[in-house]
Simulated scan of single mutants.
Amino acid sequence: MSTQKTVRQQSDEVRHNPLRLDSKKAEQIIDALNTDLAATYTLYHQVKKHHWNVEGAEFRDIHVFLGEFAHELEEAADHQAERLQSLGGVPIAGMKALAEKSPVTPEDEHVYTLRNSLENDMEMGGDVIETMREHIELTTNLGDHATAHMLREQLLELEEYVHSLHHYLEDDTLVQ
């Protein structure tokens, strides 16, 4: 196995982009998108953990719901990474870098009650929503309407899932 490594672009390097976005603006947007990417992956891993560990009378419905939620998060992360690459940046990908860049902190490795798990997902989802709203405003103010549009679409999806979590956590239920 070769130990030679040829670096094409440093992780913190921002290259000229073909989208004709000023490099100083692109740097700010790339930084914001890497934060969103880290937050999205953090939420993805926590939701996926709960998808794997869900038990109880509502197992089937919640298992499916969390699987769909995780899938949407994974797609959002992919779009975020591709967008920041098109702006001349390098998407963060290593677990250490993702953890350091993420504005949200996942729960630990233990398995919690379903209610606690969904509460934790709802709380983290709300935190990610707040970060995305800030970045929508940033990208709009910097004139990157395409990134703002992408984030708005992702925000709408995330808000729908967080709203559904809220419904799952309501006290009114037929299950005893």
Rank of each mutant, 00 (worst) to 15 (best):
K48Q: 11
R15W: 10
I62H: 02
H51A: 01
L43W: 14
K24T: 08
A76Y: 02
H50K: 07
A32Y: 00
E74K: 14
K24S: 12
S11V: 12
E74T: 11
E82G: 05
E58R: 05
T42V: 13
Q46K: 15
D22K: 09
A70C: 01
A81L: 05
H51L: 05
A76H: 08
R83G: 02
A70T: 00
D36M: 12
L37R: 10
F65L: 01
A81Q: 04
T40R: 04
A38R: 14
E55L: 12
F65A: 04
T40M: 06
Q80F: 06
D31H: 05
L73P: 07
L19Y: 08
K25D: 10
S23Y: 04
G56E: 08
R15L: 15
V64T: 10
Y41F: 15
N53M: 08
H51M: 01
F65W: 06
Q80R: 03
R83Q: 13
D61A: 15
Y44K: 11
D12A: 06
A76N: 09
R20T: 11
S23W: 07
D22G: 03
N34C: 03
A32F: 00
A38Y: 13
Q10C: 10
K25Y: 04
S23Q: 12
H45V: 15
A77G: 13
H79M: 13
K24M: 07
H71K: 11
H45S: 15
N53L: 11
L19M: 05
A32C: 03
P18L: 09
A32R: 02
L66K: 00
V54A: 12
R83P: 05
H63Q: 02
D12F: 07
G67I: 11
K49C: 02
I62Y: 04
L21Y: 03
E58F: 02
Y41K: 08
K48M: 08
V54E: 07
N17I: 09
N34S: 01
E82Y: 03
E68D: 14
L73D: 09
H63P: 00
Q9D: 00
F65I: 01
F59L: 09
Q28S: 10
T35R: 15
E82S: 04
W52H: 09
P18S: 07
K49T: 08
K24D: 14
H45R: 15
I29C: 01
T40H: 05
E13L: 11
L19P: 05
Q46S: 14
A81D: 02
L19R: 09
E13F: 06
E68P: 05
F69Q: 05
F59G: 05
E75M: 13
F65H: 01
F59A: 03
S11I: 14
Q46P: 12
V14M: 04
Q46G: 13
H16D: 15
F65P: 00
A39L: 10
H45W: 15
A32N: 07
D36A: 09
P18E: 06
K49G: 10
L33H: 04
A57Q: 15
A32I: 06
Q80A: 09
E82I: 03
N34T: 02
I30D: 00
Q28I: 01
R60Y: 14
N53D: 08
N53P: 04
E55K: 13
L66F: 01
R60K: 12
F59D: 05
